[in-house]
Simulated assay, not measured.
Amino acid sequence: MTNNVVLITGAARGIGLATAHLMMDRGWHVAMLDRDGEELLKVTSGLEKAAPFICDVSIPKEVATALPQVLSRFGRLDAVVNNAGVAEFGPIDQTDFAMWRRVMETNLDGVFLVSQEAMPALKATKGAIVNIASISGLRASTLRVAYGTSKAAVIQMTKQQAAELGESGIRANCVCPGPVKTKLALAVHSQEIIDAYHDAIPLNRYGQEVEIAEVIAFLCSDQAAYVTGQVIAADGGFESTGVGLPALRDK
């Protein structure tokens, strides 16, 4: 058990919410940030070890307001999980600049803004940053010029953070989820898409939100005290298969 404090962005649902619950189960106090105030207040109702902070991480003023509130509430900060993200897909020639900026503002700018604002507190505790990118930042795919590029940039930012902040005792790592069984994925993935992913993933299934949360929690913990600058694909082996053909498998 621990009295450490973690800040999680995009915490009202999905991987962020699963991570919050897992870390609370392990004794952490959790500052849960999300711009969806209604949903955030609903999911934090009755939680003793968590507090909600309504914040759009793409807006510098809101981040600059939220972080002091977190520190006022909890008194310290031991880890930051930059999970907030948006997904907008479309062909390159149909991706206008407004869509490009919407994706970059949250997926990339938000990681930069929250990490920078949290840096003094993390230096004080020799804490950890865990950035959530995506398999789309490691492997190119159609329709993802904005999303994939934003996540590739998050991967590079993580390495920059690890290189520069290590001397202050701050660790920075990146988790790249593959296809995850979320409500959103189930709503937008047709059976044909699901079957294709299963064929391409060695473990032959989507990941569970809690399985991604387990990796995040490990990287925040003292068990990962000598791990920094790493990019971990939690993807059932999807990234490792390259051009391997599912038809060549034994079963």
Results as ranks from 00 to 15, higher is better:
143 L>P: 01
243 V>Y: 15
145 V>K: 00
133 A>E: 01
198 H>S: 06
91 P>K: 12
240 S>Y: 11
75 G>S: 06
66 A>Y: 07
63 V>H: 01
184 L>V: 13
222 D>N: 06
21 H>V: 14
235 D>F: 05
111 V>I: 11
100 W>T: 06
215 V>T: 15
53 F>T: 03
87 A>Y: 14
47 L>R: 01
226 Y>W: 12
87 A>G: 10
55 C>F: 04
214 E>S: 13
192 E>A: 14
143 L>V: 11
60 P>D: 01
193 I>G: 05
20 A>R: 02
177 P>I: 01
76 R>I: 07
160 Q>M: 13
6 V>T: 04
23 M>Y: 12
13 R>P: 00
76 R>G: 04
245 L>I: 12
11 A>N: 00
10 G>A: 01
237 G>P: 07
191 Q>T: 08
135 I>S: 06
188 V>D: 05
165 L>F: 10
80 V>N: 05
208 Q>E: 15
178 G>C: 09
48 E>S: 12
108 L>N: 04
66 A>W: 05
95 T>R: 09
185 A>R: 11
239 E>Q: 10
173 N>K: 03
171 R>I: 10
4 N>D: 12
214 E>P: 05
245 L>W: 09
51 A>Y: 10
43 V>K: 01
33 L>A: 11
192 E>D: 11
233 A>Y: 08
176 C>G: 02
105 E>Y: 10
141 S>R: 13
78 D>K: 06
251 K>Q: 11
50 A>H: 09
31 A>N: 07
99 M>S: 07
129 I>R: 03
204 N>V: 15
151 K>F: 01
34 D>H: 04
170 I>L: 03
73 R>H: 14
58 S>E: 05
65 T>I: 13
13 R>T: 09
238 F>D: 03
211 E>N: 03
24 M>G: 05
175 V>I: 15
143 L>K: 11
97 F>C: 05
12 A>K: 00
85 G>I: 03
179 P>G: 08
6 V>P: 02
168 S>K: 10
97 F>W: 15
175 V>L: 11
218 F>I: 02
213 A>C: 05
193 I>Q: 11
169 G>T: 02
83 N>P: 04
74 F>L: 08
226 Y>G: 01
41 L>V: 10
145 V>I: 13
33 L>C: 09
175 V>P: 11
39 E>V: 15
126 K>Q: 15
19 T>K: 00
131 N>L: 06
63 V>W: 07
85 G>C: 06
29 H>D: 08
119 M>L: 15
133 A>L: 05
133 A>Y: 07
203 L>W: 07
16 G>V: 00
102 R>Q: 05
198 H>G: 05
83 N>T: 02
116 Q>S: 13
140 A>E: 05
191 Q>K: 12
101 R>D: 09
24 M>W: 04
73 R>N: 08
40 L>D: 06
